[in-house]
Simulated assay, not measured.
Amino acid sequence: MNALERPSSLAVFATVAASGVVGLLIYAGLFYANLRRVNTSGAADVVSPVFDTQQQAQREVDQWIHNGGTYTVTTTQRIQRSVPLTPQERRKLELLADEQRRAKIEASYEACLNKAASDLAKELCSFQQTPDIAGSAVPGLSAASEIPNTKLIETVRVARKNQPRRTCTLVQDYRRFNCVEFDVNAGAEITSDEQTTLKIKAYRQFRF
């Protein structure tokens, strides 16, 4: 039996080179298949001519992004905090509480009269006391300690930030810029939640 022949260096090099080419073709096929799958607008993908240098490609990228315009993202923040009541506010709350307690006393007195079976029982209704009467700053009303010393206020802050409709990412290993254009009108104003669900309108590559 003849001994196995050792493959030549040229054959090994050709095999490695062929594997590399196949790998690049597979990567390119997957990349463009993915673009077609997620492209929601049906717009064709655009591949620009190959530029001589990265600087030339960068200038075209910057101009393309600029021409796409911007949209505005609004972020709303609500901040709550406690602040002391002013003397006027506290007095207003005290008067309101007094009115509410008087209404309770009158309602209780009316209910007592309706239940009274005799004139004596009706007279006794005038002397009945409810649990929240004692200790009021106003005679016959409850204590002022029920009135709060602070109030809760809310401040709403709205921040606005302009964002480009088009954006690009440099892929140095493959000497190109991969770019996308979002499906939003130039000058539109959207919330931060709406921004996270923006669809992609088109893809583009700038190669160098």
Rank of each mutant, 00 (worst) to 15 (best):
E123C: 03
G23D: 09
N114P: 01
H66S: 05
V171N: 08
Q88N: 07
V180N: 06
L96D: 14
E189V: 10
E123M: 10
C179W: 03
D62M: 05
T130N: 14
K199L: 10
V21T: 13
P7L: 08
T169I: 03
A116W: 06
L24W: 15
P148C: 11
V38Y: 07
L25G: 07
I105Y: 13
I26V: 08
L24V: 14
L141P: 02
R176G: 02
Q77Y: 05
M1Y: 05
R36D: 10
A11G: 12
E194K: 03
Q100A: 15
Y71W: 00
L95H: 04
E154M: 08
Q77T: 11
S82A: 12
F127H: 15
T150G: 04
D173T: 07
T196W: 01
G23S: 14
D193N: 06
T74Q: 11
E123K: 09
D173I: 03
R59M: 05
E5Q: 12
T70S: 01
R59G: 02
E154P: 04
L30E: 11
R157C: 02
A143H: 12
A17S: 13
Q128R: 12
Q163P: 07
Q205Y: 07
L198G: 07
R165I: 02
L141T: 12
P49I: 09
Q163V: 13
G140R: 01
P87L: 14
C179A: 04
T167Q: 10
P87H: 08
F177G: 01
G187R: 03
E154S: 12
Q56H: 03
T53V: 11
A107G: 13
T53K: 04
R175Y: 10
S48R: 11
Y71R: 00
N114W: 08
F13Y: 13
T70V: 09
L120N: 04
E60R: 12
D62F: 02
T72K: 01
R157M: 10
V22N: 04
K151G: 03
G42I: 00
L141E: 13
S136E: 15
A97S: 12
Q56T: 00
S41Q: 00
E89N: 03
T76D: 10
I153T: 14
N67T: 11
V16R: 07
D98F: 12
L93V: 04
T191Q: 02
E123S: 11
Q129L: 13
